Simulated scan of single mutants.
Amino acid sequence: FVIIHQVYELWFKEVLHELDYLQELLRANDTPLAAATLKRILTILKTLVAQIDVLETITPLNFLAFRARLESGSGFQSHQFREIEFILGKKGRPSFERYPEGSENRKRVERRFNQPTVWDAFLQYLATNKYPVPKALLQRDFSQLYEPSSEVQRILVEVYKKNPTVAQIAERLVDLDEGFMEWRYRHVKMVQRTIGTKPGTGGSSGAEYLMTTLNQPAFPDLWAIRAEL
């Protein structure tokens, strides 16, 4: 259990690096390298999901044997996972208010909170490729949740129908979004089979709370256009 979560933190560090690099590539309009970087991130995500298989070998009684030693330790303490959520656009102020004021982790998470997301970089990529992305979206307040845009959705429909190169990047972003949702789902089921409806070690309601994080896409516009294609 401890080893898997330590390994997760190593992978989270790599994912953050790759997501930062992806944003640079999208802003530079480097489609081939952006596609390659997305492929690498997706491969890492598959590894993260596969590691849940190991955690699921721990029975409820196995977990209870050492749960007390975890004390208040929980996934809430992972500032790197919060950073990943923020860089994907899943922003919420309570997510960083759990870190002590002035701490290095708090500073890192706050910095991510105010920075552009992968989706913002993709919108810039679309604009660079001569698509009429609204200026208000390109200059929006990055600390706020992105709201689905009918204008962007119209652009995406055109991209899918007429520009396979740009559409390839859009599809890899769908894969990225789906990959994280798959990891969340597997995580929820692992928690349910291990502790059932018991509260989490970090003070949350456990699986009940985790269920609220499901089916929340990071890139809603890409999902909204499916019926239009």
Rank of each mutant, 00 (worst) to 15 (best):
F1D: 05
I4K: 01
Q6E: 07
W11C: 00
F12C: 02
F12E: 03
K13Y: 12
L19I: 13
L19N: 07
L22M: 13
L22G: 06
Q23M: 08
Q23R: 06
R27C: 15
A28W: 04
L33W: 11
I41T: 11
L42Y: 15
K46Y: 08
T47L: 00
Q51Y: 02
I52P: 01
L55P: 01
I58D: 05
T59W: 14
L61C: 10
R67W: 04
R67I: 12
A68H: 06
A68C: 08
L70H: 00
G73W: 07
S74L: 08
F76W: 04
F76A: 05
Q77G: 03
H79N: 11
R82D: 09
E83H: 11
G89M: 02
G89C: 03
G89I: 00
G89R: 01
R93I: 15
E97P: 04
R98S: 11
Y99I: 05
G102E: 10
G102P: 11
S103F: 11
R106P: 03
R106T: 08
R106F: 10
R108L: 10
E110R: 11
E110L: 13
R111I: 12
R112P: 01
P116N: 12
A121R: 00
L123H: 06
Q124C: 14
Q124G: 12
Y125L: 04
K130D: 14
Y131V: 13
P132N: 15
P134C: 06
P134S: 07
K135Y: 13
L137N: 15
L138V: 13
L138D: 13
D141P: 09
F142T: 09
S143C: 05
V152R: 08
Q153A: 15
E158C: 10
V159A: 13
Y160V: 11
N163D: 10
P164V: 06
Q168M: 15
Q168V: 08
I169F: 04
E171Y: 02
E171F: 03
L173N: 02
V174T: 05
D177V: 04
F180K: 04
M181H: 06
M181D: 06
R184W: 11
Y185Q: 15
R186F: 03
R186G: 01
V191Q: 01
G196D: 12
G196Y: 10
T197W: 13
K198I: 14
T201N: 00
G202Y: 02
G203I: 08
A207E: 04
E208C: 02
L210P: 10
M211E: 12
M211N: 09
T213F: 08
T213W: 05
N215H: 07
Q216K: 12
A218M: 08
A218L: 06
P220N: 07
L222Y: 01
A224R: 04
R226V: 09
A227L: 11
E228M: 15
E228D: 13
E228G: 15
L229H: 10
